[in-house]
Design a protein around this nucleic acid. Structure first.
Length: 433
DNA sequence: TCTGGGGTCCTAGGACCC
DNA sequence: TCTGGGGTCCTAGGACCC
């Protein structure tokens, strides 16, 4: 039996914690560069604004003047997320956080009655102490727990925010009311394909012969089917031991043509990637740099490329990663093109303890590690890029733009000291120095 | 005018081997 | 016209998730 706790309209709810005037209003939170809608209040959902909607297309769905558009503040959201997870962890064991706003966990008590009461209490406490509304669903598999969670969110009769989807007859009824495209793991492509075969609901899908699902589609989809039948298939196992890749990338605030500008951005990305590696206690075996033009500008010649280079010794040292990321950039840089996005990815990640030192590596790893630790300490204390590598010092032309921060959240300053480790409310450690 | 960022898993196909 | 039969390993790309 799996429980799934999911925060309702998470980013919007976070903004509302700090500015209660947003309650009852049509609110959306925008991605980097204020580009796309990444969170919507219930009012925004009711107005028909779809997830991922480009900000300039909001007017196609509703009167944009009635929509409050806010730039994302991910540091704030992460902090509130931690608080929610902490309260949950006090009540249940084996919490497996799946994303910033949701987590799976095991049944807290032997019997359903006691478990239900305990979980309703968690919902209440999270609302009271963090200010975030959450919903909880229970079911025999993760995919069904997702379904149960949706019901807990949507059905106003579920007054305490907890819904159990356990009895086979109940599962059957619910699956008949679940459109195929709403099933976890069935996206746009698969649902279109399934619909063309007359599969409209999750119940239709469950009736397909599993062998057909596997042969016509994939083992992944067959697993989803078995999960809907109530078999636990460990689908998309959220018990991630460690990241296999770590990526930092940004779309620039405008198109860039200067190689120095891109190099500046690449160093920043390498820096952030290295810091995250160190936080996770990992080292990367290779580094990949990629650049690309603006995919929406048909008037400009488009160029996109990437280059992956091995590190002599697996490393999480900022300077080693930055150097190799720049080498990779040199291999793919072409003059005469415009660039809109770039990124740095760490691959072949392994635990730092497993690192095999290259005998011919001249660098003093102990010294390097102490230096990196000091830089991390300073940055943790004074803000994310207080100390950085020389090429990253100039404020980048490439920095993404965010023009819709909520300046009305008066309580923010009161909370700042408790919540932030850095001086700026934005998440973008890369743009907000 | 304006279109995010960061992950995972699976599969097909090529290179190579005996 | 005919053109082995299996393996393994790696990579690129597709599909999905939040």
């Amino acid at each position: 039996m799996y429980g799934l706790v999911d925060c309702n309209n998470f980013f919007v709810s976070c903004e509302r914690v700090f500015d209660p005037r947003l309650n009852g209003k049509t609110v959306v939170v925008l991605s980097n560069n204020d580009g796309c809608v990444i969170a919507r209040s219930n009012e925004a959902k009711a107005a028909g604004i779809p997830m991922g909607c480009p900000a300039f297309k909001i007017k196609e769905h509703t009167d944009p003047d009635k929509v409050i558009q806010l730039s994302a503040r991910h540091i704030l959201y992460r902090d509130l997320s931690t608080r929610v997870m902490n309260i949950l962890s006090q009540e249940v064991e084996n919490v497996q956080q799946y994303s910033v706003d949701e987590a799976f966990f095991n049944l807290p008590h032997e019997d359903v009655e006691t478990s239900h009461r305990a979980m309703a209490e968690v919902v209440k406490r999270v609302k009271q102490y963090v200010g975030i509304p959450v919903s909880i669903g229970f079911a025999p598999s993760r995919t069904l727990a997702k379904v149960a969670n949706h019901i807990a969110k949507r059905d106003p009769r579920i007054t305490d925010g907890v819904y159990w989807l356990v009895r086979p007859e109940a599962i059957d009824i619910i699956l008949r009311r679940t459109p195929i495209e709403d099933v976890w793991g069935i996206g746009r492509r698969l649902s279109t394909s399934l619909q063309s075969r007359g599969i409209r609901t999750a119940a239709d899908f469950v009736k397909m012969p599993p062998s057909l699902v596997r042969s016509q589609y994939s083992v992944t989809l067959e697993r989803t089917q078995r999960e809907l039948m109530g078999h636990d298939c460990q689908i998309a196992n959220p018990v991630t031991i460690a990241h296999k890749t770590i990526m930092t990338s940004r779309t620039f605030g405008k198109v860039i043509t200067s190689r120095d500008e891109i190099a500046d951005a690449i160093v920043s990305f390498a820096e952030r990637t290295a810091r995250q590696l160190r936080n996770e206690g990992g080292v990367a075996g290779s580094i990949m740099t990629y650049v690309r033009g603006d995919r929406f500008r048909e008037d400009l010649p488009f160029y996109s490329n990437s280059c992956q280079l091995q590190l002599e010794t697996p490393s999480n040292d900022t300077m080693t990663l930055a150097r190799q990321a720049l080498n990779a950039l040199n291999n793919i840089w072409r003059d005469g093109f415009t660039y809109r996005k770039a990124g740095v990815m760490a691959l072949d990640i392994q635990p730092a303890t497993a690192i095999q030192l290259n005998l011919f590596d001249p660098e003093d790893h102990g010294k390097l590690r102490r230096l990196m630790n000091s830089i991390d300490d300073i940055n943790n204390m004074y803000g994310s890029r207080s100390v950085k590598l020389a090429p990253g010092i100039q404020r980048g032309e490439w920095a993404p733009t965010q023009n819709h921060f909520n300046t009305n959240s008066k309580t923010l300053h009161f909370f700042t000291g408790m919540i932030y480790t850095g001086p700026s409310p934005q998440e973008q450690p890369l743009s907000s120095e």
